[in-house]
Design a protein around this nucleic acid. Structure first.
Lengths: 188, 188
DNA sequence: GGTTAACTTAACTGCCGGGTCAAGTTGGTA
DNA sequence: TACCAACTTGACCCGGCAGTTAAGTTAACC
């Protein structure tokens, strides 16, 4: 994985490309044209291919900083909450918040780039956590019967795509809709 | 609007293009490549430009058969229901059903092609109906306070995009999610 | 300061889809 | 049946983006 150390100029370029990719992915999602990232980094597109092997490699290289770290925090936070309902409310609320701040998170959810190993690992971890939390909720009888992990996945995809399609929503509106959604999950 | 009558071959082509466009828009949404529609109709792409002036014209020519007619039925049905809550439930349920059957409806909602006059007219009519029904609901006190037409719009866009991104959902799952959504609208 | 492997890049190919037009073909009419 | 306006179309141009490579540049080590 490490190989021989990079030459100084190459190391500098790698750093610049990473920084540009993170900024671009933040703004436009994981499908930002590589030429645009290259220009922002002050290198040519071919250098991205040389250093990262293409989009998948680039995603692998920055997804941690972009969303994986936050996602692990979110999962840990939810799992640490004792009350089963509160754990779910925390988890859903935090995920929605991350979606709001990071369009790239929706790309990660959608698995648009299934060749990125990091992305696959992240998706698996998230699925495990969701299933775990929902099982706890159902066992405790605090969750609406019939609500599945697939339902939550669908709802999050839906929210992320709408957010991207319609542009930034006022935070107040966004949070109200999250509240509506959460209320629909509780035992009626 | 009518102009001189079309020659026999041109009229035949128009009919074939319309039929192919409706089928294609049904399957793939309003952004189906025109070359594909032309091929299905057995004509060249240029003929679509000659007869319809491009995508917007083609949409104008078929949107009625595709979704406008159904949408007007849905609006009429909802407006005819006396009970304010039942009117909203009918409206939301019917729209979700249409979304399920017609991917093109989501394109219409999104106004991806704002140069199609028919599409604009349809969108305005739908907005009026939504506002009207929600006002009735709020006045009668059967609707969750704070729920707006924009919230419903956002939710429908979200649902339509998720449906397209994730592919056809089992009807049972889809209807369950619609039920969840409706429940979140009622007075708590 | 000369050598060379590491590195970068301009310039290319290829695919897709929108949009246009000169050149041919054909239906209708006298 | 001969004419011509109406009609169709293959072949083109364009922009956008992915991905590749031959040729040139440069950091690092002697």
């Amino acid at each position: 994985m490490v190989g021989p150390p990079l030459r100084a100029d190459a190391a500098r370029n790698v750093a610049q490309i990473r920084a540009a990719a993170i900024a671009a992915f933040r703004g436009r999602g994981l499908s930002t044209p590589l030429e645009e990232i290259a220009a922002a980094a002050g290198v040519s597109k071919a250098t991205i291919y040389n250093r990262f092997g293409g989009r998948d490699g680039l995603i692998d290289a920055v997804i941690g900083e972009l969303v994986a770290a936050e996602m692990h925090t979110i999962m840990g936070r939810a799992r640490a909450v004792d009350d089963p309902w509160q754990a779910i409310a925390t988890y859903v609320g935090d995920r929605r918040d991350l979606q709001y701040r990071e369009p790239a998170f929706t790309d990660a959810l959608l698995m648009t780039y299934p060749n990125s190993a990091q992305l696959v690992a992240l998706a698996n971890a998230a699925t495990d956590t969701t299933v775990h939390l929902l099982r706890r909720g159902h066992d405790a009888g605090v969750l609406r019967p019939g609500f599945t992990a697939a339902d939550l996945y669908y709802a999050d995809i839906a929210n992320g795509l709408a957010l991207r399609a319609l542009g930034p929503q006022p935070r107040e509106d966004y949070d109200r809709r999250t509240r509506f959604f959460l209320d629909s999950l509780g035992r009626q």
